[in-house]
Amino acid sequence: VTLFVALYDYEARTEDDLSAHKGEKFQILNSSEGDWWEARSLTTGETGYIPSNYVAPV
């Protein structure tokens, strides 16, 4: 399991995006899409895309 933590708040801009709150942890499901990674929030269980530069490894 690849875990990352949000460094900043991010507000989803499309229905495919996933909002993130600073300190929230995510499981990365797919990081092969360049700057946008598919992730699952460990807080809400929701999945979507987050900007890779907004997260760091735990």
Rank of each mutant, 00 (worst) to 15 (best):
W37L: 10
W37D: 00
L29F: 07
V58K: 01
S31K: 13
G23M: 02
N30C: 10
K22S: 06
V1D: 14
D35M: 11
A6D: 05
E24W: 04
W36Y: 13
E33Q: 14
L18M: 10
Q27L: 14
T43Q: 09
Y10H: 04
L42T: 07
F4K: 03
E24I: 03
W37F: 09
W37A: 03
V55T: 02
S52E: 03
N30F: 07
N53H: 13
T14I: 06
D16K: 15
E11F: 09
E15G: 13
A39C: 08
A20W: 06
A6C: 11
W37K: 02
T47W: 08
E38I: 15
E15L: 11
F4T: 05
D17T: 13
G34N: 11
D17K: 13
V55N: 00
N30A: 08
L42N: 03
E46N: 12
L3V: 14
H21N: 08
G48K: 02
T14L: 09
G45M: 06
F26C: 03
T2C: 15
S19T: 10
P57G: 04
K25Q: 12
E24K: 00
V58M: 10
T14H: 14
D9L: 05
P51S: 06
E33R: 14
P57T: 05
I28A: 02
S41V: 02
Y8A: 09
T43L: 12
F4W: 14
Y49D: 01
G45Y: 06
V5M: 08
G48V: 04
Q27G: 02
V5S: 02
W37R: 02
S19N: 10
E46F: 10
F4A: 10
Y10A: 02
S31V: 11
S32C: 14
D9H: 05
F26L: 09
I28K: 02
A39E: 00
L3A: 06
G34E: 12
G23Q: 02
Y49K: 13
E24S: 02
S52D: 03
S31I: 11
S52M: 09
A20D: 00
S41D: 02
K25W: 15
R40I: 11
E24H: 02
G34Q: 11
T47G: 02
E24G: 02
K22P: 05
Q27S: 07
R13H: 10
V5C: 11
V58P: 03
V58T: 07
W36R: 15
E33L: 14
L29S: 04
D9E: 07
S52G: 07
Y49G: 03
A56L: 07
F4Y: 15
V55L: 15
R40M: 12
A56N: 04
L3W: 10
A6M: 09
R13N: 09
V1G: 14
Y8Q: 09
S41P: 00
T47K: 10
V58Y: 11
I50K: 01
K25R: 12
L42F: 05
Y49F: 12
D35H: 10
S19L: 03
I28D: 01
T44N: 05
F26H: 00
V1T: 13
L18E: 00
S19C: 08
A56R: 09
T43F: 08
E46C: 14
E46Y: 08
G23E: 04
K25G: 05
L42R: 02
L42H: 04
G23C: 08
T44H: 03
S41E: 02
L42P: 03
S19P: 11
N53E: 10
S32E: 10
A56P: 03
L42M: 13
G23P: 00
T44F: 01
E15H: 11
L18I: 12
S31H: 11
R40T: 11
L18W: 02
P51V: 03
R40L: 10
P57K: 07
S31D: 12
S19Q: 07
A6H: 01
E38A: 07
G34A: 13
L18Y: 03
T43W: 13
V55K: 00
Q27A: 09
E11N: 08
I50F: 03
Y54K: 08
T43E: 14
L29G: 02
V58A: 09
P51D: 06
I28P: 01
S19R: 07
